[in-house]
Design a protein around this nucleic acid. Sequence first.
DNA 1: ATTGAAGTATCGTTCAACAATCCAACGATG
DNA 2: CATCGTTGGATTGTTGAACGATACTTCAAT
Lengths: 235, 235
Amino acid sequence: MTATDARADRPTGRTRLLPPLPTQAERVAELLRESLIDGVYPPGQRLSEERLCEEFGVSRNTLREAFRLLVRERLLVHQMHRGVFVGLPTSDDVRDLFKARRILELPALRGAAAPSEEAVRQVGAAVDEGEAAREREDWWRMGTANMRFHQAVAGLAESARVNGFMSQVLAETRLVFHVMDAPREFHAPYLDWNRRIHTLLASGDARGAAEELTTYLDASEDQLVTAFTAMEDRA
Amino acid sequence: MTATDARADRPTGRTRLLPPLPTQAERVAELLRESLIDGVYPPGQRLSEERLCEEFGVSRNTLREAFRLLVRERLLVHQMHRGVFVGLPTSDDVRDLFKARRILELPALRGAAAPSEEAVRQVGAAVDEGEAAREREDWWRMGTANMRFHQAVAGLAESARVNGFMSQVLAETRLVFHVMDAPREFHAPYLDWNRRIHTLLASGDARGAAEELTTYLDASEDQLVTAFTAMEDRA
DNA sequence: ATTGAAGTATCGTTCAACAATCCAACGATG
DNA sequence: CATCGTTGGATTGTTGAACGATACTTCAAT
C-alpha cells in the first residue's frame, strides 16, 4: 500500500451504459462456447492448449483463463495434467439436466400469473421462429429456436440469475444432442407443443401451460434417456 | 499433431474415485471464496493482484485464473483495466436473489413428495445445528447453519446442478449480509421457522412446508430490501 | 471551480523457461 | 504368452519478467 493509494477501491456504482468491453479471455471463451454448442468439437475430445492458442492467436495463459470459464459452465471438463476435454454427458447427466429444467422452467411458467408483456412476446417469437425454420427445413435454426423458447420460458421469472442458470443448462443440453447427433427429427415434434404452451400462456392459463410443459419435459427426457442408455450399453 | 499422438483424447468415463486433486488456481479460489463469505474483504473493496499473489504465494497468472472463477460466481466483479472488486450487491440484487431462491427452493420442497431419507435428514441436521448455535450464542455458526438449511432444502431436488446453483446464490446472499453487517439478530427469528418447515416436511406435508417457506422468504426479503433501500438512500 | 496535461500505478497480455505428470512403447521376467 | 517395471517424449502446471494500455491522481493554467 503506497502512501497515496490512488486507485478508487470501489466499483462504479453506476449501472453500465457502455458494454463492459470484454477482455480477451472472455472473447476467446465466447468463441469457444459457440463452437462447442455448434458441435465443432465432438464431445469427449481433448482440446490441446498448444493447438488452440495457435488457432485463436492468444497466449497459453489467456487461453487457460478462457478454459476455466467454460469448465465452470460444465461445457468442458478439466483433468489435472491431462488437459481439458469437451464435456461428454452421460444418461445420469441427462436426468440431472431435466431435473434442473423442471425446477427452473415450471415455476417460472406457473408464477407467470401477471407476466410482463415483453416476456410473453419473447416466448411467442421463439415459437414463430421455430415454425418458420421448420417450414424452410432449416433444422439447425429450428433447434436453436427451441432452445430459445425454453430460455424465454425461464425468462418469465424475470431474474438475471435464473436466466444465467438456464442458459448454462441449455448449453449443456446442446452437448447432449451432439452426443447422439440427431437434432433434426428430435425437435420437430415439440414445436406444436411449444405453440400450445404459448397459446395457453397468452390466454392467461399459466396452470394449463405448466401442465403441458410437464408432459413435454417427461416425454423429452424419456426419449433422450432411452436413446442414451441404448448407446451406453452398446459401448 | 505428432506421428504418435500418445495422449488419450477422451476423459476417463469412470466416475472419480480419487478426489480431483485441485489445481493451484482452484485452491486459491477456494481460499478466496471462504474469505469472501467470511467477510474478510468488505464488499466493494478492490483486490490488488500484486498484494494477493504475494499473500497467497502464487504468480499473477495463477491468481488471475482464480479470479475468473469467482467472477463467474458473482462473488467478484471485474472491471477492465481497473481490477476485481468484492461484489457489492444492491437492493435490486437482493430482489433478484430472492426470485432465484423462490424458484429453486419452493419446487424442491414441493416436489419432495417421496423425499430421500438422507436428504430430509440433512435438513433436520441443519436445524439442529442452528438451534445448538443459538443456545451457545455462536451467531456466526448460526448464520452458517441457516444457510446450510436452505442448501439442504434445495438438495431435496437431488440434482447436482440445482445444488450448484443454490450454493452460488447462497454465497452471494452472504455478501448481502455483509453489506449490512447485522448477521446476529437477522437469522435468529428464522430458526423457529426452519424447525416448523422441517417438522412439516418430515411428516409428509410438503405442501404445508412450502407455504411456510413462502412466507419465510417474503418476510426475509422485505426485511432486507427495506434495510437496503434505507441504506442506499442515506448514501 | 473547471479544464487539461503529465505522471504513476495497475492491469492486460505475451513470452520463455522449468518442474511435474501422464502416456505409450519397450523390454525383462515368470 | 502375459504381466510388470522402466524409460523417453509430449503436454500440462506454474512461474517470472517484460511491455503496452488504461485509469486515477496531481497539479498547473484559465
